[in-house]
């Protein structure tokens, strides 16, 4: 197997057009998340960009402490990985909220805390991806996205991102990703939703930008 060709850069105008599409996904997922949590939530698209490989592995920060993450593999019209990541404090606070316990009760990632995180990822991810699949519809019959059940991991953020970026890295030194951040009850929380398409999906997105969506 040989690798090493570089994909072209998306133009600023194309990235702006894509940002608008991802905002639709974030808006729909915001409503679902607010219902799930029973309190106001907001998801904000912070970044839709192509980055150098090494820089992309640091979008969750360069901390060497492990983080918690739920990873969904996407198949169908949109392919790649969707990752909901949080630092331990933020993730365990989410578990307390959903389990109706006082904040600070959960101190470790047991089965029930993991389940709370995975169910949140499932709800946010499915709504987000459904909205994206409609946005990326090009008139062909198949535009469904089939997400896998979220897999929980507690690992180094750079290791996690390396794994998720590997498919794009095989095609290019530049990788495409989007980053969405969260507010709960009007305050920022250290959660992050990363949409990391694989190389085929990036090519699909580029073609849709060139030839249009229906």
């Amino acid at each position: 197997m040989q690798h090493g060709t570089n994909r072209r850069m998306l133009s600023p105008e194309q990235l702006t057009a894509l940002t608008d599409l991802f905002r639709i996904g974030a808006t729909e997922a915001t409503a679902a998340l607010s219902r799930w949590l029973g309190r106001p939530a907001r998801m904000t698209v912070e970044r839709v960009d192509q980055l150098a490989l090494a820089d992309a592995t640091e979008v969750l920060g360069d901390s060497e402490s492990p983080i918690a993450a739920c990873v969904m593999s996407m198949r169908g019209r949109v392919t790649g990985q969707l990752i909901l990541a949080f630092d331990d404090a933020s993730g365990l606070s989410l578990a307390d909220l959903l389990l109706e316990k006082p904040s600070g009760t959960s101190t470790a990632w047991g089965e029930i805390e993991r389940s709370a995180a995975q169910e949140t990822a499932n709800i946010v991810g499915c709504v987000y991806l459904n909205a994206l699949s409609r946005s990326f519809h090009d008139g062909t019959a198949t535009h469904e996205v089939l997400p896998s059940p979220p897999q929980f991991t507690h690992d180094y953020p750079q290791s996690l991102l390396q794994f998720a970026l590997m498919n794009q890295a095989a095609a290019s030194d530049l990788v495409f990703l989007t980053e969405t951040q969260f507010h709960i009850d009007g305050s920022p929380v250290n959660w992050n939703l990363l949409f990391i398409p694989d190389a085929d999906c990036v090519a699909t997105i580029e073609n849709l930008l060139l030839f249009g969506m229906k």
Partner: peptide, 11 residues
């Protein structure tokens, strides 16, 4: 990251 380059890679 990968086993084999094509040509002279930038990285």
């Amino acid at each position: 990251v990968l086993p084999k380059a094509t040509g002279t890679p930038e990285l």
